[in-house]
């Protein structure tokens, strides 16, 4: 303990006249503070999707049994997916709308894959507050525009699943997907 004596007092002043100890304390506190960042991040990052959840991020869908005019539901990342086999009339309906008049202007072609225009694949999640719209199952209301209808707050979607009436701000979202064959897709 006898060695714990102050070495030299002249060192205590920097050329700027500041006491050198200030710098040491600031450096210590700053260094310790920098260490808090990765710790805090790991405490936050644990809430992100875990590896097993991420591994389920893609799902294969077989469309071969879906007749014209029908739709099927599937689950992707825990959310419903609607895959609708559009009829020629529905495609014509969707194409004749003036895109400029839409709340969320998108053409049917923007929402389907070239050559597979009859397959309309969207999330079954209303863009208003996240309810599942009606219209995918047989006999459900399809709303004023022949697509989907969300009963929670009355949003109507047309045959291209675009918002036409009601509070929802956007069209039903199209998930990323690719056709593996004319009747099977991988979503995600």
């Amino acid at each position: 303990m006898a060695s714990e004596v102050r070495q030299a007092s002249a060192d205590d002043l920097t050329p700027g006249g500041e006491r050198r100890r200030d710098f040491l304390y600031v450096a210590t506190a700053a260094f310790a503070g920098a260490g808090v960042v990765p710790v805090a991040w790991s405490l936050v990052n644990q809430m992100n999707p875990s590896a097993d959840v991420l591994a389920l991020a893609s799902v294969d869908l077989d469309l071969s049994a879906v007749q014209e005019g029908q739709a099927i539901k599937a689950s992707w990342r825990g959310k419903p997916i609607f895959a609708r086999h559009l009829t020629a009339a529905e495609i014509a309906d969707a194409k004749k709308v003036d895109v400029a008049t839409l709340r969320d202007p998108q053409k049917l072609e923007d929402r389907t894959k070239p050559g597979s225009e009859q397959w309309l694949i969207t999330l079954g999640v209303c863009t208003h507050l996240g309810c599942v719209p009606l219209g995918a199952a047989e006999g459900e209301s399809r709303g004023d525009f022949g697509g989907y209808f969300c009963p929670c707050h009355g949003s109507h979607y047309d045959t291209a699943a675009r918002i036409r009436k009601g509070p929802a701000p956007k069209n039903l979202e199209v998930p990323p997907y690719t056709f593996k064959s004319p009747t099977s897709v991988t979503i995600g």
């Binding site: 644990q46 875990s50 590896a51």
Partner: peptide
């Protein structure tokens, strides 16, 4: 074991 294997940084926590 899910915490140990799949949760981000779960093994450390």
């Amino acid at each position: 074991e899910h915490i140990m294997r799949d949760v981000n940084g779960g093994w450390m926590i």
